[in-house]
């Protein structure tokens, strides 16, 4: 797996300033990843651990999204000669997940999901099932790329969910599993890199497919355009009209 930090010059504008400076648009792929899981499992700390040394997060209160960005160089495992400049957007919830109030806008255009629970919190592991359902309902594809993270793995004495159990669950659902610690940084980068690899592999396959189909030689997903679309919120109703 070959991900490395981009050259210093690309980052210098943001590093020198405490505010978030606009990044150049000089990249090959924009990849949007979402962190999902119960409130308090450490999503924000995890993303902070992965990015904070370089960029601060931006909180967009109107849509309840906290997002961070990072540039990486991606080399495919089977073709390390070809390097891609990837602009990573890491989306985080802003606490509304405790009310199960994520809007569909949050899921839109997401390419990969970091599904997270806390190994010291049994409920957060049990709820992974419902998070999986949610993301499958809202994600753009039927089989989105997902990695499962058991966070707070450093708190060994307070552990409630064994690694064997989590690994078995991940296997059943076809997800890679990582034991992570946002506090120490253990496996954090490795986990994101694995998810990026899944997303990039899928994209390259799509590109290859369209190329073979005679489509113009171009990268399909060059940039995601943020649209001002106003779609009605999806309402889920049970037999009682949603009332219980």
């Amino acid at each position: 797996m070959g991900i490395e930090e981009p050259p210093q010059s690309i980052l210098s504008t943001s590093k020198s300033s405490s505010s978030v400076a606009p990044m150049s648009t000089d990249y090959d792929y924009l990849v949007k990843l979402l962190a999902l899981g119960d409130s308090g499992v450490g999503k924000t700390s995890f993303l902070g651990q992965y990015t904070d040394e370089v960029f601060q997060s931006k909180f967009v209160s109107t849509v309840g999204i906290d997002f961070r960005e990072k540039r990486v160089i991606y080399r495919a495992p089977n073709n390390s000669a070809r390097a891609h400049r990837v602009h990573l957007q890491l989306w985080d919830t802003a606490g509304q997940e405790r009310f199960r109030s994520l809007t569909t806008a949050f899921f839109r255009d997401a390419m990969g999901f970091l599904l997270m629970f806390d190994v010291t919190n049994e409920d957060s592991f049990t709820h992974i099932r419902s998070w999986l359902e949610q993301l499958r309902t809202h994600a753009a594809t039927e089989t989105p790329d997902v990695v499962l993270c058991g966070n707070k793995a450093d708190l060994a004495t307070r552990r409630k969910v064994t690694e064997v159990r989590a690994r078995e669950f991940a296997k059943q659902h076809g997800m890679p599993y990582f034991e992570t610690s946002a506090a120490s940084g253990h496996n954090v980068a490795h986990c994101v890199e694995k998810l990026l690899e899944l997303v990039m592999t899928r994209m390259e396959e799509a590109v290859e497919k369209s190329r073979r189909a005679g489509a113009a030689h171009q990268k399909t997903i060059k940039r995601i355009v943020v649209q001002d679309s106003l779609e009605p919120p999806e309402t889920k109703r049970s037999g009682c009209g949603g009332w219980c």
Binding site: V60, T62, G64, F99, S101, T103
Partner: peptide, 8 residues
């Protein structure tokens, strides 16, 4: 209701 909108 929290003021979280479904746009963007």
């Amino acid at each position: 209701r929290m003021a979280i909108h479904n746009v963007g």
